[in-house]
Each structure stands twice: as structure tokens, then as C-alpha cells.
């Protein structure tokens, strides 16, 4: 903490670039630094280098999957998934709404129906995995089932205490964890596993005891109350 030693002009610039990348500057100083970006390419590059360097700090955060409604919200806000009556009637109908599309749609449905009805032909079955999560000292029991990329988790007994929730963690073979979200108090949790999360017997599923709504920081804060490896069914 020896602030008697002055920074050299080069060091000053470098520190300023870091502060801008971090969002530590305020007021006129922030504005001056932003203005400098468009006139001083070396400074702009220094800021980008800091962004690149510091982004590595996020590597150590445990990923936390957002609930499905977040994706739905994004789609709605971007107009990618409008309820039927909100469609703009002036917008050109997409190909599948036009006659040729509807026709090929019908053909596709017919083909699928024929396929399903053909005797003696089982649809190719996706690999299935399961895990039974049981707590040692409470009656908590959660069944996990995975078929293909669809995962279902059902609370059989032992809901979390008032003001608490069970958070579900996917722990990959390399020990890397991803939060899958919070166990609903009743009923099932269903999700589609994203790319990069493949079920295997190397994977285990764990439940941790967290404040209501899930760990506020995204990192497990409470004890793990149950854990089980996936087994091929």
C-alpha cells in the first residue's frame, strides 16, 4: 500500500483501461475514458485486453440453469413465440402456414402416423437413466428419470422446510457441477438437457438445502442432503 510511488504515464493508462473494463470509473472521469476509446486505438485495445483477461474470473462460477420460463420470456419479448392472436396479420405468413406448407405438414403427420401404426416396428428407444435420491436422516426422496435428453425429477416425500428449498445439482464425471434449479414443492420438474450435458453412469445428481428460491449466489451454500449416481435402466 505504498501510494507515494507515482505511476508512470504508461502505467496510468493501463490502470485506467482496467478501471474502465471493470466499471470502476464514475462521472466525468468515466466519460473522458469512454470518449478516448474512439480516438485512441491502443487504449481501446488495452480495455479489450482487460475484458478478455478478467472474463477468466467467471470460469470458476458454478453454472446455474435458469428455469424454462426465462427462455420463454426471451422468445416472447423478441416476438419469437407470440400467442396466436397477437400475430401481425400484415406479416407474410411463414411457409408452413401457406398451402404448400400445410400440405407437407399433413403429409408429415400422415407419415408419422403410418410409422407409429406399422405393426412390429418399435420406435428407436433413447437410452434411459435413473437415480433415486434418498436422505439419510429424513424422509426426503426424489426420483430422477432421464430418457434421451428429457429429464424428470419427482419429489416422492420430504419437502424442504418452510423458507427453504432443495436445489438440484448435476455433477459431471469430471466433478464439475451445474445447478438445475430448485425442486418444486409438489409435482414434477421437467427439463430438456442442453448440449454438453450427456447422461452417463459417471454423472451424479445431488440435492442441497438452500434458502427459498435457491442459493442466492448461485453457488451451493447449504449442505448436500442427498446424492446418487445415474444408473442405466
Amino acid at each position: 500500500m505504498n501510494d507515494e510511488v507515482q505511476l508512470t504515464p504508461l502505467e496510468e493508462d493501463e490502470a485506467l483501461a482496467a478501471e474502465l473494463a471493470l466499471g470502476l470509473l464514475e462521472g466525468a472521469e468515466a466519460q473522458a475514458a469512454v470518449d478516448r476509446l474512439s480516438t485512441d486505438p491502443a487504449f481501446a485495445q488495452a480495455v479489450r485486453d482487460w475484458q478478455e483477461r478478467l472474463a477468466g474470473l467467471a470460469d470458476r462460477l458454478t453454472p446455474v440453469m435458469a428455469p424454462a420460463r426465462a427462455r420463454q420470456g426471451i422468445r416472447q419479448r423478441l416476438g419469437h413465440a407470440l400467442p396466436p392472436l397477437e400475430n401481425d396479420p400484415l406479416e407474410r405468413a411463414p411457409w408452413w402456414r401457406r398451402p404448400i406448407g400445410a400440405l407437407s405438414g399433413l403429409l408429415a403427420v400422415a407419415a408419422v402416423a403410418a410409422f407409429l401404426w406399422l405393426p412390429g416396428q418399435d420406435a428407436p428407444s433413447a437410452p434411459r437413466y435413473g437415480a433415486e435420491l434418498v436422505a439419510q436422516d429424513t424422509d426426503l426422496r426424489v426420483d430422477a428419470r432421464i430418457e434421451g435428453r428429457e429429464m424428470r425429477l419427482a419429489l416422492q416425500s420430504g419437502p424442504a422446510a418452510e423458507g427453504r428449498d432443495w436445489e438440484v445439482w448435476w455433477i459431471g464425471g469430471d466433478g464439475a457441477a451445474v445447478s438445475l434449479g430448485v425442486m418444486p414443492r409438489n409435482g414434477e420438474m421437467r427439463m430438456t438437457l442442453p448440449e454438453g450435458m450427456a447422461p452417463s453412469s459417471q454423472v451424479s445428481i445431488a440435492l442441497s438445502d438452500e434458502p427459498e428460491g435457491g442459493s442466492p449466489t448461485g453457488q451451493a451454500t447449504g449442505p448436500v442432503v442427498a446424492v446418487a449416481d445415474l444408473t442405466r435402466l
Binding site: A58, P63, M65, A66, A70, R71, G196, T217, G218
Partner: peptide, 28 residues
């Protein structure tokens, strides 16, 4: 892209905001 990156970006929002609903809204 959402599948590949949203869990990480959600973790960043949570790390800063320390509040699930706000992090989810920010993620959107």
C-alpha cells in the same frame, strides 16, 4: 447459443445480484 451459454451467464447475474428473480430477469 442459449443452451450452450445461459447457465454460465445466469451464474454471473446471480453472482452480482444475489437474487434469483432479478438474475432471471436480467438474463432475459
Amino acid at each position: 447459443l442459449y443452451d450452450a451459454t445461459s447457465a454460465k451467464l445466469h451464474a454471473i447475474c446471480l453472482s452480482v445480484l444475489k437474487d434469483r428473480p432479478e438474475a432471471e430477469e436480467t438474463l432475459q
